[in-house]
Simulated assay, not measured.
Amino acid sequence: MLPSLLRSSLLAAALLPAAQAPAAEPACAKPVYLTFDTGHMEIAPLVAQVLQRQQVRVTFFAANEPTRQGDGSLGNDWAPWWRARAQEGHAFASHTYDHVYWRADLGGTPPSFSVRPSAGERQGRQFIMTAAQYCAEITRAADRLAEVTGVRPLPLFRAPGGKTSPALLAAARGCGYAHVGWAPAGFLGDELPSEKFSNALLLERALRDIRAGDVLLAHLGIWSRKDAWAPAVLEPLIEGLKARGFCFATLREHPGHQGWIASRAKP
């Protein structure tokens, strides 16, 4: 038998009105979806530090691009970095293995495409890829991400430069990948020349224009930008958006992609 005092305490607790129970954390009404494409990776450690400090989860779209240090962004030198991001709960998806730009549709059944990669053995050369070859290019990056992170990438991809066609998108969906672009206000501008678009201008514009539901785009290092974007803009942007009531989520939680992701889940 429980002592009478303990029985009375338990009964009183059971009869507490619901208003006195701990309140559940309210769902954020203003989510945004920060995404990073690979790049020269020099700022990747800084990006990781900011995301960890701010407790923000993002989605990384990865290709095996040339890097300032190491053997490519999906090479063995960077594998520990990717593994650590997986352990922190970030999401991953393909950016095509050799960062292959779509150039034109060439027709046919099944279709083929004129492409030009900016990485790999055929870097800078224009050639023809069949739909099956393009699918293999997406899958190659996804498979490598699975290898270096230890988690299954999302069944999503981002075409380099966001350059696509209806035929290319249909081919990719046919082999299990839906395309993800970005919102106009979500183009954070780290690819733009710093001589014309200062970091202060890019930060001001983003904080002014970003809206709930936007997919945001930045990179893990842009070769051409002289005034590096991330050290000056990334953390103030995150803090400024939080102050405006925004929260951050990965594309796993995006309502426009959840159904597709669930439909591609393997048992």
Score class of each variant (00 low, 15 high):
residue 168 L to R: 02
residue 152 R to I: 07
residue 90 H to D: 13
residue 163 K to A: 02
residue 113 F to W: 05
residue 87 Q to G: 15
residue 162 G to N: 09
residue 85 R to Y: 05
residue 173 R to V: 03
residue 73 S to E: 02
residue 127 F to L: 13
residue 93 A to I: 13
residue 154 L to E: 03
residue 165 S to R: 14
residue 59 T to G: 00
residue 150 G to W: 09
residue 73 S to P: 09
residue 76 N to G: 14
residue 96 T to N: 10
residue 119 A to R: 06
residue 134 Y to N: 05
residue 78 W to M: 13
residue 65 E to Q: 13
residue 88 E to F: 06
residue 115 V to M: 03
residue 88 E to D: 12
residue 94 S to F: 01
residue 142 A to I: 05
residue 75 G to Q: 05
residue 172 A to P: 02
residue 68 R to Q: 15
residue 139 T to S: 01
residue 127 F to W: 15
residue 147 E to F: 01
residue 134 Y to C: 08
residue 96 T to D: 05
residue 167 A to E: 15
residue 160 P to T: 08
residue 138 I to Y: 00
residue 76 N to Y: 04
residue 173 R to K: 15
residue 120 G to W: 09
residue 105 D to L: 02
residue 103 R to G: 07
residue 141 A to S: 15
residue 113 F to M: 05
residue 90 H to R: 11
residue 154 L to S: 03
residue 72 G to M: 12
residue 120 G to E: 09
residue 165 S to L: 11
residue 132 A to N: 09
residue 63 A to H: 03
residue 66 P to W: 04
residue 125 R to A: 10
residue 105 D to G: 09
residue 126 Q to C: 00
residue 158 R to W: 10
residue 131 A to I: 12
residue 172 A to G: 00
residue 78 W to R: 09
residue 157 F to Y: 14
residue 72 G to H: 08
residue 160 P to N: 02
residue 172 A to E: 05
residue 155 P to K: 03
residue 90 H to P: 00
residue 74 L to A: 01
residue 81 W to N: 07
residue 125 R to P: 00
residue 164 T to N: 08
residue 110 P to R: 08
residue 62 A to Q: 07
residue 141 A to N: 10
residue 82 W to I: 12
residue 114 S to E: 15
residue 162 G to D: 01
residue 96 T to S: 12
residue 100 V to I: 10
residue 147 E to Y: 00
residue 119 A to C: 01
residue 101 Y to R: 11
residue 155 P to Q: 09
residue 111 P to A: 05
residue 120 G to V: 01
residue 145 L to P: 08
residue 132 A to W: 04
residue 75 G to N: 06
residue 174 G to W: 12
residue 131 A to R: 07
residue 104 A to T: 00
residue 61 F to I: 02
residue 135 C to F: 03
residue 97 Y to P: 02
residue 162 G to Q: 06
residue 166 P to K: 13
residue 92 F to L: 13
residue 77 D to W: 05
residue 107 G to H: 14
residue 111 P to K: 04
residue 116 R to M: 15
residue 60 F to T: 04
residue 156 L to D: 06
residue 140 R to L: 11
residue 79 A to H: 11
residue 119 A to L: 01
residue 75 G to E: 10
residue 121 E to A: 15
residue 144 R to F: 00
residue 80 P to V: 04
residue 70 G to M: 10
residue 102 W to Y: 14
residue 121 E to G: 12
residue 107 G to T: 15
residue 140 R to Q: 15
residue 132 A to L: 01
residue 145 L to A: 06
residue 90 H to Y: 12
